[in-house]
């Protein structure tokens, strides 16, 4: 589904990602990306989704090199993402924004996204006026429209309680299994990642540290030293 080859991204003189190689798990599996602050997790999602142009390396999506493709092109071909900071249309109602995106992506079955994200009661509310937790769900719902094949989520639990984060992860896991979506989630809440992700990748200082099943990652001494510490 997604292969990242020697991907490097720099911000001026700062190397945010250094020659990262990664193969994302297949459909129906939630692939978690964890690591300390500054590890390059969000930069990885930015590069994959087209928000930031890599300085070197290649991104292959469904066998095609998409490194220089636009954000909109990637989205129309099934690569969707949600954001660390809620990135929705504040002045549109939930209904208006879901309808607009559904129209663009020719998705006439948005009802189940509304149901899964539990947005039925908020359809006629302006998005800027609803609670932050609900806005997060609108953000994820916008990414789920159009039946994406690869879903990239940048800290979907940001601003939510641990319980809400875990529940959101469970909903997403349920959804990607049902729909056969491959999903990558960057998250600080390690417990939620280990509980819900089938595969976990650890980044540290812009480099790939380890990839494996949650149990393997928990036991990996390099990961414990660099990131998990006593949390393991």
């Amino acid at each position: 589904m997604l292969e990242i080859e020697k991907l490097s991204v720099s911000y001026g003189t700062v190397q945010a990602l250094q020659e990262v190689d990664l193969k994302i798990a297949g459909a129906g599996v939630l692939h978690g990306v964890i690591g300390p602050n500054g590890a390059g997790k969000s930069t990885l999602l930015d590069a994959v989704s087209g928000r930031r142009r890599p300085t070197a390396g290649a991104i292959r999506y469904r066998g095609e090199n998409i490194t220089r493709r636009s954000v909109a092109w990637r989205r129309r071909r099934g690569m969707a993402r949600s954001f660390q900071r809620t990135n929705i249309f504040q002045d549109l109602t939930v209904r208006e924004q879901l309808a607009l995106v559904a129209w663009r992506l020719r998705d006439d079955r948005v009802e189940d996204v509304i149901e899964v994200m539990d947005l039925g009661d908020y359809l006629d509310e302006k998005a800027g006026r609803i609670a932050y937790g609900v806005q997060r769900r609108v953000d994820v719902a916008l990414a789920l429209i159009g039946r994406p094949q690869l879903l990239l989520m940048d800290e979907p639990g940001a601003g939510l309680s641990a319980e809400e984060t875990l529940r959101l992860f469970e909903h997403v896991r349920e959804l990607i299994r049902e729909r056969g979506i491959a999903a990558v989630v960057v998250e600080h809440d390690v417990d939620a990642v280990f509980a819900c992700c089938g595969v976990v990748t650890v980044l540290d200082l812009g480099r790939h540290l380890a990839t494996g099943a949650p149990a393997e990652i928990r036991a990996d001494k390099r990961v414990i030293t660099a990131y998990l510490g006593s949390a393991a």
Partner: peptide
């Protein structure tokens, strides 16, 4: 109007 509000989200929703 949606582009005026949030151009980035529009691009991430597949819009030119």
């Amino acid at each position: 109007r949606a582009t005026r509000q949030n151009e980035e989200r529009m691009r991430f929703s597949g819009f030119d």
